[in-house]
């Protein structure tokens, strides 16, 4: 489904983030990407979304080379991916409800469906009582949960979760991870970037470990070892 082919990403001469990386993610997989802070986990997710272009090498999304895909195609791909960003990327001038609804409106969904789905997903994620708040009226954990609700609402084929539990308490962390597991069981692909050892060890799924711009380990049912 997603394929990296000798991908190198260099931001400026001095920061070589990824170096000649090749790997593949199959449909329905639950892949965790781990590594120290600054190793390039977020960069990897941005490459998949076409938000960054690789310095060399190719990335394929369902056989489509992102280097040569036109902007409309890239936007179509982005709509297929539910992404939980490490920095949330909420729309500051829209309410909680509107933030989630926007994703569905972008997809061109009908109003009836939006009115039905948005409250449901907000309820699941525990924001049912805050639908009219603006993002700056939410706590860190609430913002994170809003970001998660937004990634889930369109029922995307792939969810990319970049550190989705960084601001959550253990209870909410557990809830979010089991939610992701449930979605994965339903056949969706999950890419999870994290440095939370406990989560990884509990999951018992594929783990890709990055270090110094290389994949140093790629194991099915892996453990968190750095």
């Amino acid at each position: 489904m997603i394929k990296f082919n000798n991908v190198t990403k260099i931001y400026s001469q001095s920061t070589v983030v990824l170096q000649d990386i090749s790997f593949e993610i199959k449909e329905g997989e639950f892949v965790s990407v781990v590594g120290k802070s600054g190793v390039g986990k977020t960069t990897l997710t941005r490459l998949i979304l076409g938000l960054e272009a690789p310095t060399s090498g190719e990335i394929y999304f369902k056989g489509e080379n992102l280097n040569t895909a036109d902007p409309a195609k890239i936007q179509e791909i982005r709509r297929k991916i539910g992404c939980i960003y490490q920095d949330y990327k909420l729309l500051p001038k829209k309410t909680v409800y509107e933030n989630v609804a926007y994703i569905m409106q972008v997809e061109g969904k009908e109003n009836e469906e939006i009115d039905r789905e948005v409250p449901k997903v907000l309820e699941i994620i525990g924001l049912g009582g805050k639908i009219n708040n603006f993002p700056d009226q939410l706590s860190g954990g609430e913002k994170q949960r809003l970001a998660i609700a937004r990634a889930l609402v369109n029922n995307p084929e792939i969810i990319i979760a970049d550190e989705p539990t960084g601001n959550l308490d253990p209870y909410n962390t557990y809830e979010v991870i089991s939610l992701l597991q449930k979605i994965n069981k339903a056949g969706k692909t999950i890419i999870l970037a994290t440095h939370d050892r406990e989560i990884i060890n509990k999951l018992g799924k594929r783990v890709v470990t990055l270090e110094n711009g290389k994949i140093i380990r790629d194991e099915q049912a892996g453990k968190f070892i750095i």
Partner: peptide, 9 residues
């Protein structure tokens, strides 16, 4: 943000 969630231009 709109761009990253795939909104058309």
């Amino acid at each position: 943000t709109m761009k990253t969630v795939g909104a058309s231009n």
